[in-house]
């Protein structure tokens, strides 16, 4: 099998408080059947053998569903192939001799922890602010008591497919989290189960999003372009609509 040699320029930053820089490494014998993370595994094993610190990056499932991996590859969140996470990006999409730059997500709300690892706990806090239906275990009615038209269930599933990786934030010049929040708000506003908390949910999730330091959406659509799950920007319009609706209802009810 033909192998390739690539030049990697990788962001190295020992900790949040220290400065970082791009460091160059050569990766040889790269097989086209390797994933991008497997390439980093090989580079790291080489560094370890030389007594150097390996490149820190997050990954878990390595099949595009957990949202752990996330890195900017040659200027694009998750790399050049659309609808693909870094772990599902295979080296057959690169050419021998390519130079590839690898950087962490960059956003104030996602501080770098080390190298390519960032702190995305802001997403958890937004979820905690209201991204759920308040139902205690044991209190549910029979699942078929609430009928949901297939179209609504499918549309809710489209939105629910978000893996929370943060590529949308990383690709946005304002580091906005609107697509992430919009996807959750859309999912639950489409389902009858989500109705009782519909207003409260959108107001508190947006409030938390702003408190975390994510910027506003200025409709560039970069988020949709890099989203590995192709979550549609239309969810951001839904978010705005839901927010206005809830704000107006709050005003009229007080």
């Amino acid at each position: 099998m033909e192998t390739m040699t690539l030049k990697l320029r990788v962001w190295r930053q020992p900790s949040t408080a220290t400065d970082g820089e791009l460091v160059e490494y050569t990766a040889s014998n790269v097989s086209p059947d390797m994933s991008f993370l497997e390439l980093l595994d090989v580079v790291n094993d080489g560094l370890i053998k030389k007594g150097e610190d390996p490149v820190a990056f997050d990954s878990d499932c390595r099949e595009g569903i957990c949202g752990s991996c996330g890195m900017v590859i040659s200027g694009v969140a998750h790399g050049p192939k659309s609808a693909t996470t870094a772990c599902q990006l295979f080296m057959r999409h690169f050419n021998d001799g390519d130079t590839v730059t690898v950087e962490p997500w960059r956003a104030n709300a996602f501080p770098v922890v080390k190298d390519l690892v960032v702190d995305r706990s802001a997403f958890d806090r937004i979820q905690a602010a209201g991204g759920y239906v308040s139902v205690d275990a044991g209190g549910a009615v029979d699942a078929n008591e609430m009928l949901i038209p297939k179209g609504d269930a499918d549309a809710a599933m489209d939105a629910a497919a978000c893996i929370g990786c943060g590529a949308c934030v990383a690709s946005c010049k304002n580091a906005s989290a609107s697509l992430f929040v919009g996807a959750k708000v859309t999912q639950l506003s489409l389902m009858p189960q989500g109705q009782p908390e519909r207003d409260r949910r959108v107001l508190s999730m947006v409030e938390q999003m702003e408190a975390e330091g994510f910027g506003p959406c200025s409709n560039e659509g970069e988020c949709e372009a890099v989203c590995p799950k192709e979550i549609s920007v239309s969810h951001i319009q839904t978010l705005h609509r839901e927010y206005i609706r809830a704000s107006l209802r709050r005003i009229t009810s007080t």
């Binding site: 759920y132 239906v133 139902v135 275990a137 044991g138 209190g139 549910a140 009615v141 699942a143 609430m146 269930a153 499918d154 809710a156 599933m157 629910a160 999912q187 639950l188 389902m191 189960q193 989500g194």
Partner: peptide, 8 residues
């Protein structure tokens, strides 16, 4: 329980 949580 899962349907009540809004699992699609």
């Amino acid at each position: 329980q899962c349907a009540a949580q809004g699992v699609p």
